[in-house]
Structures are given as structure tokens and as C-alpha cells.
């Protein structure tokens, strides 16, 4: 493997340098360049992908914001847009696509199904892609309108604007051994998916077993 022998922290810019005049100016230029040339990697699996295509088409025209071209190769993409529901069978494909993307990279979870599993709380569906890959922006909606997706992408741009090369190491930290593994650890997945319940822990977590709430709205008024 052709790994550079030099450790990253001894490099002049990419280490934990303090934000000096030079780095802040470099930050400005680098972030300006990055946020205005975000190339999305479309990972469209369902109806959200139709809205994503509409955002890229002439009426809404993502290219106005620098998403000049949908990059169908993960190696040339900057932002992964996961649009639609992801079944467990597709989970390793999503993870591998993310692992193949070059740093710097960002991820948008578009729509209810990608963000939380949505109505598909079943045996075959991933309950939120944040269990598989790290997500920067969640766009809610079923599906979100193109304005929603564009707003999500602009939030990514806002996020990039405040990045600094000074904490490059933290921002770009990635565990090479973690490739192909779940992003969230098992306790976290339990906490994320537990609220929806699961057949093995349904009574404990989904609060179906007992509730102290009054049943009807009328009761609460009296």
C-alpha cells in the first residue's frame, strides 16, 4: 500500500494548526470553492428520487447552486443524496458507495424513509440510514419538494462555510477499519430504532404495553 510514511500532523496545513491569518484566508478560498462545486452522488431508490430529478431539471435547476452535474461515480462525488427507502439487502451497497467517495464528503438523507424508515417499520427495511452512514442533513417530507432538497443542500453549503483547515483532522476523521461496518454502534441503533419498537423489544420500548395518557382529547380538557 502506498501510504505516506509522514504522519498527517507534521504537515503544515492539515494538522492541528492554530487558525492564523494564512489559514483563515485559505479556509475562505477553499470553502468557497468547495461549497460552490458540490457534485451530488444520487442514490435514488424510490419516489424521493423523482423529486431529486425535478430539483436537477430546468424549473428548479440545482446547477444554480453549484451542483453542476449529478455524478454517477462515487469517486467523483462530494455529497451523497440518499433519496428513498433502503432495504437491508441494499444496506451494504449504500455503505460501500459511501466508503468509495473521496474526502471531503457529505451526506443528505432525503425524505422520511431514508431518515427514519418512515411508514416501512417492517422486517426488511433499514430504520434510518444514519445507522449505516453518517448523515449531515436530514430533509423531512414524503417526498420533500425540490425546494426542500435545495434548502438541504444550501445547509450543507452553510456547514462548509464554517469549516476550517485547522480542525481538518477532526472533520475528516474516518476509521479505515470501519469500512463496511455500521456507522452507529449497536447501542445507538437500539436507541434510534427502539422508539418504533421491534418484535424482540416491542413491549419494552414502543410503549404499547402501558400508557398513562388519557385516551381521548375530551378527557384532557376537563
Amino acid at each position: 500500500m502506498g501510504v505516506n510514511e509522514e504522519s498527517p500532523s507534521s504537515l503544515p496545513v492539515a494538522g492541528n494548526a492554530s487558525p492564523t491569518f494564512l489559514t483563515t484566508k485559505v479556509d475562505f478560498v477553499v470553502n468557497w470553492a468547495r461549497r460552490n462545486s458540490l457534485w451530488p452522488m444520487p442514490f435514488g431508490t424510490a419516489c424521493c428520487a423523482i423529486e431529486m430529478m425535478a430539483s436537477a431539471a430546468s424549473n428548479f435547476d440545482l446547477a444554480r447552486f453549484g451542483m453542476e452535474r449529478m455524478s454517477f461515480s462515487p469517486r467523483q462525488a462530494d455529497v451523497l443524496i440518499c433519496a428513498g427507502r433502503v432495504p437491508y439487502k441494499l444496506a451494504p451497497v449504500l455503505r460501500r458507495t459511501w466508503d468509495q467517495m473521496m474526502q471531503p464528503k457529505w451526506c443528505i438523507s432525503m425524505g422520511a424513509c431514508a431518515s427514519s424508515g418512515g411508514v416501512f417499520d417492517t422486517y426488511s427495511m433499514v430504520q434510518g440510514i444514519d445507522t449505516i452512514v453518517p448523515v449531515d442533513v436530514y430533509v423531512p417530507g414524503c417526498p420533500p419538494r425540490p425546494e426542500g432538497l435545495i434548502y438541504g443542500l444550501m445547509m450543507i453549503q452553510e456547514k462548509i462555510k464554517h469549516e476550517s483547515l485547522a480542525d481538518h483532522e477532526n472533520l475528516r476523521r474516518e476509521d479505515p477499519a470501519g469500512a463496511g461496518k455500521p456507522e452507529a454502534d449497536l447501542e445507538e441503533i437500539k436507541a434510534l430504532t427502539g422508539v418504533f419498537g421491534n418484535s424482540t423489544q416491542q413491549e419494552k420500548l414502543s410503549s404499547l404495553a402501558q400508557t398513562s395518557r388519557p385516551g381521548r382529547f375530551k378527557d384532557m380538557l376537563e
Partner: peptide
């Protein structure tokens, strides 16, 4: 007789899914 959300917990389902090759 199959439960709607599967027999395993979500953690285990995620792990098994990512073990596919």
C-alpha cells in the same frame, strides 16, 4: 406466524445485512 418487524433486533439485522458479500 412471522412477526412484522422480524425476529431479530434492529442491531442484529443491521449487522447481518452489512455482512453480505
Amino acid at each position: 406466524d412471522f412477526p412484522l418487524r422480524g425476529r431479530f433486533s434492529r442491531e442484529k439485522q443491521t449487522e447481518i445485512a452489512l455482512d453480505q458479500s
